[in-house]
């Protein structure tokens, strides 16, 4: 399942967690769990979209863009198969 997820990510498209769940015949929670797994392994990174920019924005404190959604990105230097320890 993790391999299929990586294969989907390797196609370089923008996907939603929900669409990925449908494609992998599982739940969005399972997709998120796998993305977090890949994140711990360093293959996927979360995008801290608001962190730096919103700190400088005068509307940052009242922005409706709450921390309701997360975003992940496949790291450009990662291929679908991770490297073994030397």
């Amino acid at each position: 399942m993790l391999e299929r997820l990586l294969a989907e990510l390797d196609r370089g498209q923008t996907l939603s967690v929900e669409k990925l769940a449908l494609q992998l015949e599982t739940t969005p929670a399972m997709v998120k769990a796998m993305l977090e797994h890949l994140e711990r392994q360093g293959q996927v990174a979360t995008v801290d979209f608001c962190q730096e920019m919103c700190a400088e924005c005068p509307l940052g404190s009242i922005c409706a863009r709450e921390k309701r959604q997360r975003l992940w990105q496949l790291k450009l230097d990662c291929v679908a198969v991770a490297s073994r320890p030397a």
Binding site: G12, E18, L35, I62, R70, Q73, L74, L76
Partner: peptide, 22 residues
Amino acid sequence: RSAFIMEMPLYHIPNSRTIALL
């Protein structure tokens, strides 16, 4: 191109206070 995965928030009833404040 690099893959990008978004978590979609659930649709929900808007919070009038949040909008009013904004």
